[in-house]
């Protein structure tokens, strides 16, 4: 058991957990934040993507001990004061989802790379999103949503 302190969606969290447990399951079960999804458990799909210090990581592969002292953001932390983040609004406006299961991972992956590359080209988006899987085939709209959000955000997040 380890004493793990980290920031989660802006709030300080302290947990007594086995440091080898995966962040995905601690988020979903111990902390009740179920917006982060399991899709493959092997880093192939991106459904479990969260941000650690603004980098997108696959929480199914992240051990709790590696979260110590870090800042974690999940999909639940993106909406601020009842206002959707421009990426979220763009996903709604573009209907960039069907079953919605891949959506939190898609949005957070996009968030992370827009931070580094605020004005991505179409092919940048494809490259950055390529390891996030969507079975429903919402891809074309996800690209449009990211394009339009990046324009709205004008570099700010």
């Amino acid at each position: 058991m380890a004493d793990i302190k980290f920031k989660l969606n802006g709030k300080q969290v302290q947990l007594e957990v086995d440091g080898d447990r995966r962040l995905l399951w601690v988020l979903r079960t111990d902390l009740g934040l179920t917006g982060t999804k399991y899709g493959c458990g092997e880093s192939f799909c991106g459904s479990c993507t969260v941000l650690i210090d603004n980098e997108d990581v696959r929480s199914c592969q992240t051990s709790m001990k590696d979260v110590q002292g870090k800042e974690v953001m999940t999909i639940e932390g993106l909406e601020k004061n009842g206002k959707l983040h421009p990426l979220q609004s763009a996903f709604v406006e573009h209907d960039a989802l069907q079953c919605g299961y891949c959506t939190p991972g898609m949005i957070l992956t996009a968030y992370s790379f827009l931070k580094k590359n605020p004005k991505p080209s179409h092919s940048d988006i494809i490259k950055e999103m390529d390891d996030n899987l969507c079975r429903c085939g919402a891809h074309q709209r996800i690209i449009s949503a990211i394009e339009s959000a990046s324009k709205k955000m004008e570099g700010g997040l």
Partner: peptide, 15 residues
Amino acid sequence: NRRDAYEKVTGKAKY
């Protein structure tokens, strides 16, 4: 537009 979109982009939608 999809009426379930808000829940799905905020992680509130329950599966």
